[in-house]
């Protein structure tokens, strides 16, 4: 890929903000002996949606999980290189990964609501983080998060019902509400719509469009239309490398590399 000098933005998009929020440099990752990520360089911009695309097994989800250190949960994983946020290295031993995860939230492939009521699913984490404590404040926060996630009208009359009683698409929006309730800077989404029907998918895509006003969103998808629809930037991963990183319009209309072009036009993937 075209490497610019450090500090310079890697891509240009005239319509969007360019405030850097996460800077990844030379990131390698091993599962035991096998290397899954090779020297990743990537800049992520505030209040943008960045899509990570590529064939399955290319390392895009693994990379996503580096951003909030969810890979720490797998004992055999080893990481080298830097992921910089707020001017400090995320992988530094002094960085508290629990604190990091509050700034970098995550939404998973399969909706995973807690075995609690809809209300408590949203209220639980903010309460633990002492963001709110008084009952009316909690109520407000829950309502705001559910509104932001576009779920409020559907659940406002059944907040005490278990989160698992909702449909798949609703559950996923509940998980998004849960994530935004703790006011993170970044929300990672790991194929958030792959387990959902087309209508729920469209709802969530609209949601991403609105949420980027408040948050920075990084999403993994292997649905290229989705990337084209929602993302401001798109990174194409292949065999553990970033082959091409560009603003979405350029990526899909005029890809710079042959591999990206082949993938986008459906020759493999």
């Amino acid at each position: 890929m075209n490497r610019s000098s450090p500090g310079e933005p890697l891509t240009h998009n005239d319509n969007a903000h360019h405030e850097l929020i996460i800077r990844v440099r030379d990131l390698d990752l091993w599962y035991g002996e096998s290397q899954a990520l090779h020297g990743i360089d990537l800049d992520l911009y505030r209040n943008n949606v960045t899509a990570l695309i590529g064939p399955s097994g290319c390392g895009k989800s693994t990379f996503l999980r580096c951003l909030n250190r969810m890979n720490d949960l797998i004992p055999s994983v080893r990481v080298k290189g830097s992921v910089e946020m707020e001017g400090r290295d995320v992988n530094d031993a002094r960085t508290d990964e629990v604190a990091l995860r509050r700034l970098v939230g995550m939404v998973f492939q399969k909706p995973n609501p807690f075995p609690k009521s809809i209300y408590d699913n949203v209220a639980y984490a903010p309460r633990m983080h002492d963001l709110v404590s008084r009952k009316p404040d909690v109520d407000d926060l829950v309502e705001q998060a559910l509104r932001d996630a576009g779920l409020w009208d559907e659940v406002k009359d059944k907040l005490k019902q278990p989160g698992t009683s909702l449909s798949g698409g609703q559950q996923q929006r509940l998980c998004i509400a849960r994530a935004i309730a703790v006011r993170p800077e970044v929300i990672l989404m790991d194929e958030p719509t792959s387990a959902l029907d087309p209508i729920s998918t469209a709802t969530i895509e609209d949601l991403m469009d609105r949420l980027k006003l408040q948050f920075t969103i990084v999403t993994v998808t292997h649905n290229m239309q989705q990337a084209a629809r929602v993302a401001d930037y798109t990174a194409f991963f292949h065999l553990g490398e970033v082959v091409e990183y560009n603003d979405t319009k350029t990526m899909f209309s005029n890809p710079a590399t042959k591999r990206a072009e082949d993938y986008i036009t459906g020759r493999y993937g």
Partner: peptide, 24 residues
Amino acid sequence: SMRQGSLALGLTQGETIRDVVLPA
């Protein structure tokens, strides 16, 4: 996925166990 959901919200392992895993 339940544990990951909780950890991804910035909850500690102890809180995850107490408030998510054990109730489940």
